[in-house]
Computed example of a mutant assay.
Amino acid sequence: MLDFFTSLNDHNLPYPDTLHPIVVHFVIAMVVFAFFCDVLGYFTGKARLFEVGWWNMFVATIAIFVAIIFGQFEAGLAQPYDVAKSVLNIHTLIGWSLSGIIAAITAWRYVIRSHNPQKLPIHYLAAGFILVAIVGVQVYFGDQLVWVYGLHTVPVVEAVKDGMLP
């Protein structure tokens, strides 16, 4: 049984496939959906949508830290080659920054919700728009790591092990 946890598979992971993308897709969906609900609630006046937005941001705040834990662990096992390192470093920097930004926006949202759960200021929606834009940039770099540089894909893992990639 211990062999299962200490040996790495074809993806250079101790478990069947990457977990970071699975968790991070929840974060992406929750942040975007929270913003969508908040904008819709703002323009329709339906305060129930603000509640949906709040809970999505709350769960996204917790989930992003889980995504970062798996991301850091899997990045360490990826053995990125020289060309991919800069993109991985940018992706890591933005990811850690997003954890702070999401936590801060969620805290701000908690204060707003405590004072008046029926309204959202336009400044909060502007911050939500900026957050969604930053998430979009982060998605771009994450996609590059998988679809351009092939981190944790079998052919790239084999090429790195064989010394074909510096």
Rank of each mutant, 00 (worst) to 15 (best):
1 M>C: 05
3 D>P: 01
5 F>L: 14
9 N>Y: 01
9 N>M: 03
14 P>G: 04
15 Y>C: 06
16 P>H: 10
17 D>R: 13
18 T>H: 09
18 T>I: 14
18 T>N: 13
20 H>D: 01
21 P>I: 01
23 V>F: 05
24 V>D: 09
26 F>M: 14
30 M>I: 02
30 M>N: 05
31 V>R: 10
35 F>D: 12
36 F>H: 08
36 F>C: 10
39 V>P: 02
40 L>E: 09
42 Y>L: 10
43 F>V: 11
45 G>C: 05
51 E>H: 08
52 V>Y: 15
54 W>P: 00
56 N>C: 14
58 F>A: 02
61 T>D: 09
63 A>K: 12
64 I>S: 10
69 I>P: 09
70 F>C: 04
71 G>I: 02
74 E>T: 07
76 G>V: 01
78 A>G: 09
78 A>M: 12
82 D>A: 15
83 V>A: 13
84 A>N: 06
84 A>K: 04
86 S>K: 01
88 L>C: 09
90 I>H: 01
91 H>W: 05
92 T>D: 05
92 T>P: 02
93 L>H: 08
96 W>T: 09
98 L>M: 14
100 G>L: 01
104 A>C: 12
105 I>C: 02
105 I>G: 01
106 T>H: 05
106 T>V: 02
106 T>F: 14
108 W>R: 13
109 R>S: 00
110 Y>W: 15
112 I>L: 13
114 S>L: 06
116 N>L: 01
116 N>T: 05
117 P>R: 00
119 K>G: 06
121 P>N: 14
122 I>E: 15
122 I>F: 15
123 H>C: 03
124 Y>H: 14
124 Y>S: 12
125 L>I: 13
127 A>M: 07
128 G>L: 00
130 I>V: 15
134 I>H: 05
134 I>M: 08
136 G>D: 08
140 Y>I: 13
145 L>G: 08
145 L>C: 10
147 W>L: 14
148 V>Q: 08
151 L>N: 04
152 H>E: 06
152 H>I: 04
153 T>K: 12
156 V>P: 09
157 V>Y: 03
158 E>F: 00
159 A>P: 00
162 D>V: 02
162 D>W: 02
164 M>I: 03
164 M>R: 15
165 L>V: 07
